[in-house]
Write a protein that binds this DNA or RNA. Structure first.
Lengths: 246, 246
DNA sequence: CGTTTTGTTGAAGTTCCTCAAAGCTTGTGG
DNA sequence: CCACAAGCTTTGAGGAACTTCAACAAAACG
């Protein structure tokens, strides 16, 4: 169990264990998957809208985001991804990318050939089911974001994002109970929340003044989890984590 | 090929053919799926947030929507569904609903037991792949909605919704070239777009004045498709249709 | 240590919301 | 077929939330 690959595969396995109960066979199949490692610098594009991909990425380290660019120049970030996530798993069944994938921080990903995934999932329905489920959770997060964008104020929406990112990191052991990494620029937050950077500044100020959080040194400190989730009207069930305790 | 079941299964098969190329075996497997028919009145809840489902619905006739309710009383519609769609296919791998499903118009759905779907998809990787793909397209629509909510004005956002619903209906033969059913109340539109009904009235007025559309008698007439998709900054590729012509 | 990027603040403008009233449809019972 | 009720849509006026522009402050980087 501690081959050289371990450092690479462990985050993915932790992630799957946080939302489901992968059997020994599934874990073995995952560990045996071929991959090539690749690193990216902060800001670098990994996969662009319109491209066809021949592998799926599993995040080993760092943060990634997915986004869409509008003709008018707008950018909408639709998801953030951390170690253990597979940000473009959908490309296994959707030939063409309908959005882009980029590095938020310096990051390392394992690229797993579609061919290998297709072959294994065809032979192992259990493996297919757990990866399918993973893509469904991805979709569940989008539903949460649609709701946040449509029916929450800047204040509640931002609180909601922090709740989500904190719990997701906790679930895979990347955050402490009230402190989590948050290496996002205010322009990233703005593009994720459908706001302007200026308004993000003001909103973060309001959240700080309310005694809920502070955001500094690329880390989020949560001073009042209950207050934060109340402000966010946060219900963690959409994350589909086994144990969604704060 | 024209058994009594045909009326029920045809919409689903048309839908799958509009986005992929199901083999004869897959089509046969779909036609052999057990189901029970159920009808609902407009406004009726079909499946509620938090419930566990033991079947998946395939829409035979009518319109459905999925939505989330907020503690504060807000409602966010996250998707509309028409004949051929499987609005809760995700429940196959996500035990608990993270949103609700309701009838927008009087409608009929075929309820297919999870058990049957699980057994067939485990035996037929092709079937699994095509249904998996279907759930990925569902997710792609959510990405489109996140982007619309975050980075488009009320005007562009509403135009975008009409583009999407028109193309989706055309793809399965439910709309003519410039005319499609649109049985939505302004409160439905408002809850879908994250706006108020009052502002929907004004936005529809603006779209009408611009000569792009008219919405009456529960039908949408598109007077200027190019103008509408320009206003929407619409790019149909996210629908992942085989042929995305307007 | 200067340069570039990122974050903060203020003032003015726009978009969308709220409240409130009136007009229009749709459906129902007489 | 009409009368009435209920629900849906429209319109106006005033207000709140968020944006834009612009200047400045503070980090981060080489």
């Amino acid at each position: 169990m501690s081959e050289p690959n371990d450092r690479i595969v462990q985050p993915l396995i932790r992630r799957l264990k946080s939302t489901a109960e992968p059997s020994g066979g599934v874990i073995r199949a995952l560990s045996d998957l071929p991959f090539t490692l690749k690193s990216f610098e902060a800001g670098q594009d990994i996969l662009r809208d319109g491209e066809r991909s021949v592998h799926c990425a599993a995040v080993v380290e760092g943060w990634l985001c997915r986004f869409k660019l509008l003709p008018g120049g707008g950018r909408q970030i639709i998801a953030f991804h951390i170690a253990g996530d597979m940000p473009d798993l959908q490309s296994l069944h959707l030939g063409v990318m309908d959005h882009s994938l980029a590095a938020v921080t310096p990051c390392t990903v394992a690229l797993i050939p579609h061919e290998a995934l297709r072959e294994r999932t065809a032979r192992m329905p259990d493996l297919a089911a757990i990866l399918w489920r993973e893509t469904m959770i991805d979709a569940a997060l989008f539903r949460g974001w649609v709701t946040a964008m449509g029916r929450r104020s800047a204040y509640g929406r931002t609180a909601h994002l922090f709740c989500e990112l904190h719990l997701r990191q906790r679930a895979v052991g990347l955050a402490e109970s009230r402190l989590s990494p948050m290496p996002l620029r205010q322009t990233d937050l703005a593009d994720a929340m459908g706001l302007t950077p200026v308004h993000i500044t003001r909103t973060l100020g309001a959240l700080r003044k309310a005694g809920l959080i502070t955001l500094q040194n690329r880390a989020l400190t949560i001073h009042d989890w209950d207050g934060l989730s109340e402000a966010a009207e946060f219900d963690p069930s959409y994350l589909h984590l086994g144990n969604a305790a704060g």
